[in-house]
Design a protein around this nucleic acid. Structure first.
Length: 667
DNA sequence: TACATACAC
DNA sequence: TATGGTGTATGTA
């Protein structure tokens, strides 16, 4: 694309989105459903095994001796190969022999390129990061994690109680969307391997091409090596938009507030519709898919479940042209997540997968057995996310009320390093960005530039201004300042972003936004809608219900302890205060709640303060637990639960912060 | 706030 | 010859 003008480029790539439908990592070896709920001894053993495995894979043993190094290097190519293969390389249609062949071809085709070198660098960085995490594990593995376990279990109970099973959420996903649309126009394309996109990037491929390993996100020139007869079709966005509009018309009938994620994907909340019909959820979705086919001759796949997360996972199960219904029952959901590869959870990408795998977590079910460890090793946010994945929890409302936080433009081009040319790029991009900002009536204070060097390393620089700006000139001036400090550079991409946004202080702008006011400037695109960002600003009065408590009393312990669900009084020992209690489950939960939040956490904080003071004090004395409350530590054992030494005081601070954040969560 | 990463689509 | 563009979230300093 040589010195292709920006407009031309825009035509080809604006709003281009790679279809990700087949990108899930699906290694069959993950499916083996061994040990999901192991107890702790077992857990530790499995964990050790995972650690050993990782060490084998990483270049851990390196600096020992050169020969080993060479060997390790070779093994570590494994992860890089996976990385290069793209996320979807393990997907159906290829047996393992083909898979190896495909990976080999991709590897050979990439080798030596700047892209390859950069991927290698990133891969090493990740390996190192994982090594560091495993070292942290080493330091805590001998600690008594009983308390952590209690905290986590408590949190699990809370999450379980928050489970909302009242909604019927559907995720709909068009099959090989762009490719299918192209096949409508030219049915002969159905009989040949075909992909939509260009030599540098494919957006999607038909099922014949997938058999050869050709898939979305792959550069066209590599795809051709995999499949020399591949037919490549350039993008035709107007067609895709038209098809998408038809599909959305149908969605609208079933949920006027449906949430589109892209041209080919959307979430529907069918709860309301279901009250108007005798059809089952699955039947309704069948009907929707039939209507889509009648209207467009295109097929779609769907998942129906209690929340977005699992609905999304479900839509992948029977694709193409299929659907999957997961009943909204806790048992069914737990059974479903038990063997679900963690990678299928939306939000878990290849990096997270590798990290978790190193910690012995391959499926959502695995999370439970590692919960105390994960609690220690992950950030509170990540940990919380893991628990929700384990429980199969997710958002049950489709509101997208959050306003936009940034707006940006970026372009790839033939490398430039000439200062004048660089500054010209800034001008071009600033102009585009200013237009987009104007379209949405936005101004902002923070300008960032992004530079991708020819080595593929990325640099971002930002500057925040005291006042809001929006003109291309203002943007360009700041961007040039930022650029100047980075010179000299040789880059293949430049981007400019505006953030810290604020709507233009313009009266009826809220209305104007929807009827694109004809500005003095007609912008490149004929349909006047060059980006596909629809400002979905629907007020959603119905959100309010989602806060209601569902009183379907759930036996929160069925899965974890197998205790009876009947309200029978039992002799239980509170893991926090160590007292023997006679109560039923709900009472016990309540007690643990109180105990945890009101007493023990404080005690821990104090204890840690203490330990922090005393450096590595004799650790036995901390009889500080008599913080007055309904639930005192009888023997001081719990709060004193012989932690063997913590690392640096830095770590203590972190732990403290962690527990504090947990406290916040409770309150 | 600035910057880097990870992720979705 | 050749590996995208837009946006959000998160972690860390």
């Amino acid at each position: 694309m040589e010195d292709q003008s920006v407009d031309e480029f825009e035509d080809q790539y604006s709003s281009q989105v790679i279809e990700e439908e087949d990108l899930f990592f699906d290694d069959p070896s993950f499916d083996q459903d061994d040990n999901n709920h192991f107890e702790d001894g077992e857990s530790a053993a499995l964990f050790a095994q995972a650690v050993a495995q990782h060490n084998q894979l990483s270049t851990h043993a390196q600096d020992k001796d050169d020969e080993i190094q060479g060997q390790a290097q070779e093994v570590s190519e494994e992860t890089l190969r996976n990385r290069l293969a793209g996320a979807s390389a393990h997907k159906a249609g290829l047996d393992s022999l083909d898979k190896d062949r495909v990976n080999q071809i991709i590897y050979e085709a990439s080798k030596g390129s700047a892209f390859f070198e950069n991927e290698q660098k990133k891969d090493h960085a990740l390996t190192k990061r994982i090594d560091e995490m495993l070292q942290r594990y080493d330091q805590i593995k001998d600690l008594d994690l009983t308390l952590e376990q209690s905290i986590v279990d408590h949190k699990i109970r809370e999450l379980e109680e928050s489970r909302d099973l009242t909604q019927a959420i559907c995720h709909l996903d068009m099959d090989a969307f762009y490719a299918s649309v192209e096949e409508l126009d030219d049915p002969s394309l159905k009989d040949v391997p075909m992909a939509v996109g260009g030599m540098s990037m494919l957006c999607t491929s038909n099922y014949l091409a997938r058999k050869s390993g050709v898939r979305s996100g792959m550069p066209g020139f590599i795809a051709i090596k995999l499949c020399p007869s591949l037919k490549m079709i350039p993008l035709h966005f107007p067609k895709y938009r038209a098809a998408s509009a038809k599909v959305r018309d149908i969605f609208k009938k079933y949920d006027p507030d449906f949430l589109p994620m892209s041209l080919d994907e959307a979430y529907l909340n069918l709860t309301k519709y279901l009250t108007t019909t005798d059809l089952s959820p699955a039947e309704v979705v069948e009907q929707i898919r039939n209507e889509i086919f009648e209207s467009t001759r295109l097929t779609a796949s769907a998942g129906i479940a209690a929340n977005r997360m699992i609905a999304k996972v479900c839509s992948d199960i029977n694709k193409p042209n299929g659907q999957y219904f997961l009943p909204s029952e806790p048992e069914a959901i737990m059974e479903f997540t038990k063997n679900l590869s963690i990678r299928k959870v939306p939000g878990v990408g290849r990096v997270t997968q590798r990290v978790l795998e190193a910690l012995g977590v391959k499926t959502c079910g695995d999370i439970y057995g590692r919960r105390a460890l994960l609690y220690r090793l992950l950030s509170p946010i990540s940990f919380n996310f893991m628990l929700k994945s384990y429980l199969g929890l997710g958002s049950t409302s489709l509101s997208s009320e959050s306003s936009r936080k940034s707006m940006s433009v970026e372009r790839t081009f033939n490398p430039i390093s000439d200062r004048a040319a660089l500054r010209q790029k800034v001008d071009q991009l600033s102009e585009l960005l200013a237009q987009d900002l104007a379209k949405d009536g936005l101004r902002g204070k923070t300008v960032s530039i992004k530079l991708k060097l020819t080595s593929f390393t990325v640099r971002a620089r930002a500057k925040t201004f005291p006042s809001y700006i929006s003109s291309s000139k203002d943007i360009a001036r700041i961007a040039k300042d930022l650029l100047e400090k980075e010179l000299p550079v040789n880059i293949r991409l430049m981007g400019i972003r505006m953030s810290t946004l604020k709507p233009q202080a313009n009266e009826d702008q809220g209305v104007k936004k929807y009827f694109s006011v004809v500005t003095n400037k007609i912008i490149n695109d004929d349909d006047g809608n060059s980006n596909n960002y629809t400002p979905m600003k629907r007020p959603r009065p119905d959100d309010i219900e989602s806060g209601t408590i569902n009183d379907t009393s759930i036996d929160t312990d069925t899965e974890m302890q197998g205790t009876s669900s009947r309200p029978v009084l039992m002799d239980l020992i509170c893991p926090i205060c160590n007292r023997q209690l006679q109560m039923d489950n709900p009472q016990f939960n309540y007690h643990v709640d109180e105990c945890l939040t009101k007493v023990t956490v404080k005690a821990i904080l104090q204890e840690q303060d203490h330990q922090g003071m005393e450096v590595i004090g004799s650790g036995e004395d901390s009889n500080n637990s008599s913080t007055s409350s309904s639930c005192n530590s009888e023997n001081g054992h719990t709060s004193n639960h012989s932690r063997k030494r913590m690392g640096t005081s830095n770590r203590q601070l972190r732990d403290k912060a962690r527990i504090k954040s947990l406290l916040d969560y409770y309150s």
